[in-house]
C-alpha cells in the first residue's frame, strides 16, 4: 500500500517581514495511509495549519519534500492533480463558500476541473447525500446554520473525488450541535468511503475517534500514536499546554485515588463500561444509552 500523503523531513519558514524568519515547521515527517483517520492537535501557533497547507501544495517546503502519491508538491505541473487528490476544508464556514446557492457551490470544484455538466450534476447530488444535505440544493448559503455550511463545504470537496480531506479546525466556530454533525460526517467518510481524513482540532474529545493522534509542538511532532497511547500520558500533554479528554482526566483522578481501571477510557461510554465492570455489574453501555 502506498501512502496518500508522504511528508518527508519538511521544514518551513514564513517571511515574518523585516528579514525575520518564522520557523513554523522543523523536520516533520509523516505518512497518511488510505482510509486512515488522523487527528492533529497542538496549541496555538504550533504549526498545524502550516502542515495542513503543505498537504495540498498551498505551501511548498523550504526544505524536504511532500509527496501526494507519486507527485512532489515542488513540481508545479502537478499542482491541480494534487489539489484534486487532497481536498481542504477551512475553519470559517462563511469564507469558503463561493456561490449563491448550495448546489452551485458544490459544483464549483468539478467546474474548475472541467468535468462535463451531466457528470457534475451526478457528483453534486451524490456529495450532498453523503453529508446529509439533500433537499438544500437551491438554498442560499447565508440561510444555513454553521454546521450545515461546513457540511456544504465538505460536499464541495467530496465532489472533486479526493482521496484525502484535510480539515483545519472545521468545528472551531460551530455550536455543539454543528460540531456533532460535522464530526459524524467526517467519521463516516473515513470508515465508509475510504477517504483519508486529517482532522485538525482543539477539541480533545474529537481526537479520540481518530485512528492515530499526532501532537504538534513548536513546529515538530511531539507525540504520535493511537488515541489511547497519547491520552494515557496526561502529564506529557499538560507539559505541551494541552488538555486531556474529560473522562481521561477523571480516570487519572480515580487512579490516583487508588481505583484501578483496566485501561485508559476515552469516551463517556467506555468510562461507563469500565466503572460498571469495576462494580461487578458488567458493561453498562446499553443502560447508558437508554437514559
Amino acid at each position: 500500500m502506498k501512502p496518500v500523503v508522504h511528508v518527508e523531513n519538511v521544514s518551513y519558514a514564513y517571511d515574518g517581514g523585516n528579514q525575520e524568519q518564522v520557523e513554523a515547521l522543523l523536520d516533520v515527517s509523516l505518512k497518511i495511509w488510505p482510509g486512515e483517520f488522523v487527528a492533529v492537535i497542538g496549541h496555538n501557533g504550533s504549526g498545524k495549519s502550516t502542515l495542513a497547507k503543505h498537504m495540498n501544495a498551498l505551501l511548498v517546503p523550504t526544505r524536504g519534500n511532500v509527496y501526494v502519491f507519486e507527485m512532489n508538491t515542488q513540481d508545479e505541473s502537478w499542482v491541480w492533480e494534487i489539489r484534486q487528490t487532497v481536498g481542504m476544508v477551512f475553519q470559517n464556514p462563511d469564507n469558503q463558500i463561493v456561490a449563491t446557492t448550495v448546489e452551485e457551490d458544490v459544483a464549483f470544484g468539478p467546474e474548475n476541473l472541467g468535468v462535463e455538466p451531466g457528470e457534475i450534476r451526478r457528483r453534486v447530488d451524490e456529495a450532498l447525500a453523503l453529508v446529509d444535505m439533500t433537499g438544500y440544493e437551491k438554498s442560499a448559503p447565508h440561510m444555513l446554520s454553521g454546521g450545515q455550511k461546513q457540511r456544504v463545504a465538505i460536499a464541495g470537496v467530496i465532489a472533486m473525488r479526493p482521496r484525502c480531506i484535510v480539515l483545519d479546525e472545521p468545528t472551531a466556530m460551530l455550536d455543539p450541535v454543528g460540531r456533532t454533525e460535522v464530526l459524524r460526517t467526517v467519521r463516516r467518510l473515513a470508515s465508509d468511503e475510504g477517504i483519508s481524513i486529517v482532522h485538525i482540532t482543539h477539541f480533545m474529545n474529537e481526537a479520540v475517534y481518530a485512528d492515530r493522534v499526532i501532537v504538534m509542538e513548536e513546529g515538530r511532532i511531539a507525540l504520535s500514536g493511537t488515541p489511547r497511547e497519547v491520552f494515557s500520558q496526561p502529564a506529557t500533554l499538560r507539559k505541551l499546554d494541552l488538555d486531556v479528554p474529560q473522562v481521561t482526566e477523571l480516570a487519572g483522578q480515580l487512579q490516583a485515588a487508588g481505583v484501578a481501571l483496566s485501561r485508559c477510557p476515552l469516551t463517556v461510554e467506555e468510562m461507563a463500561d469500565d466503572i460498571g465492570t469495576l462494580l461487578g455489574r458488567g458493561p453498562c453501555r446499553s443502560e447508558l444509552h437508554s437514559h
Binding site: 495540498n56 498551498l58 491541480w80 489539489r83 484534486q84 481536498g87 481542504m88 477551512f90 463561493v98 448546489e103 452551485e104 459544483a107 464549483f108 470544484g109 468539478p110 467546474e111 474548475n112 476541473l113 472541467g114 468535468v115 462535463e116 455538466p117 457534475i120 450534476r121 453534486v124 464541495g156 470537496v157 472533486m160
Partner: peptide, 15 residues
C-alpha cells in the same frame, strides 16, 4: 478557491 482548483475561466465547465 485555490484549494478547489480555481484557475480562471479557461477550461471551466458549468453545472
Amino acid at each position: 478557491m485555490e484549494a478547489r482548483c480555481y484557475r480562471g475561466g479557461e477550461g471551466r465547465t458549468r453545472l
